[in-house]
């Protein structure tokens, strides 16, 4: 990854031009040809720096509920617990973190009742009862773009 890649990433993570020839427009902005930009973006995609290019939806505006969950899972149960949790479509992020509450995941569903039902199901299936749900009551910032 070089300085030009970083320039492209800083631009493309904020906004991909909603135009007929998006790569030409980005190229014009930073003095590259359409082909140059396209090839670099393809390379960044292949190497895994870019996960995808597309729309990020506002779950709330679509009427969806979301929450952050933390679970206290005994070491020997982690693998099974993670497999069960990850099988839910609404679980989009799941990490192990260094704390007594060691598994943290996000859950999105059409309603909070559905999330609560799923969490109850997870407790029942896995035997892990210590799962807490902490929905956001206020958003101060939601901007997954990084200054590279």
């Amino acid at each position: 990854m070089d300085a030009i890649d970083r320039k492209i990433l800083n631009m493309i993570q904020k906004e991909f031009p909603l135009e007929t020839e998006p790569y030409r427009i980005m190229g014009d902005r930073i003095g590259l040809t359409e082909d140059d930009v396209f090839e670099r973006v393809m390379r960044l995609k292949e190497s895994g720096v870019i996960r995808r290019i597309g729309a990020v939806f506002d779950s709330k505006k679509l009427g969806y509920a979301s929450t952050l969950c933390a679970a206290e899972v005994p070491e020997e149960k982690i693998e099974d617990f993670v497999a069960v949790v990850n099988s839910y479509r609404g679980v989009t992020h799941n990490y192990r973190r260094r704390h007594r509450y060691n598994i943290w995941f996000t859950f999105i569903a059409p309603s909070m009742e559905e999330i609560e039902r799923s969490l109850e199901e997870i407790r029942h299936t896995t035997g892990v009862v210590q799962i807490i749900s902490m929905p956001a009551t206020r958003t101060f910032k939601i901007d997954a773009s990084f200054d590279l």
Partner: peptide, 18 residues
Amino acid sequence: QGIVRKFGAVLRHTRAGL
């Protein structure tokens, strides 16, 4: 309308040098 919050690239920050 804000239904699409962003149209752009979603990065893997760990691969992007962060």
